[in-house]
Design a protein around this nucleic acid. Sequence first.
DNA 1: TGGTTGACGGTGG
DNA 2: TCCACCGCCAACC
Length: 107
Amino acid sequence: MDRFAARVVAVVRQIPPGRVATYGDVAARAGRPRAWRAVGNVMRACGDATVPCHRVVAAGGRLGGYGGHELLKRHLLAAEGLRVTGTRVLRFAEVRWRPGHAPGGRR
DNA sequence: TGGTTGACGGTGG
DNA sequence: TCCACCGCCAACC
């Protein structure tokens, strides 16, 4: 497991239920604000059920993709009390998880 | 070692 | 508001 991937996974696992974070936010907290692309790759490769990858959405509240299981992602988010419509998360600004400063920023 | 892909972000039309 | 194009970083072939 690469340092970056581990960092991304750690961040995603910190996302509380009923909240969502964008790939950009996760990447930023992972230490690479411009590596949101890689975050998507890590997510795709991530098969760990302990990682709530369904809480990671695209910018603007868009669901983005989910390995072809976008429907499932939408269902999981709805199960957490999130309002989802089509490929969009309603009240995104309110349910968006805002990560504080990275703890013990070690590079 | 180099090139392409991808669960994307942002801007423009 | 939705669709298309360009730019980006890391992983895989």
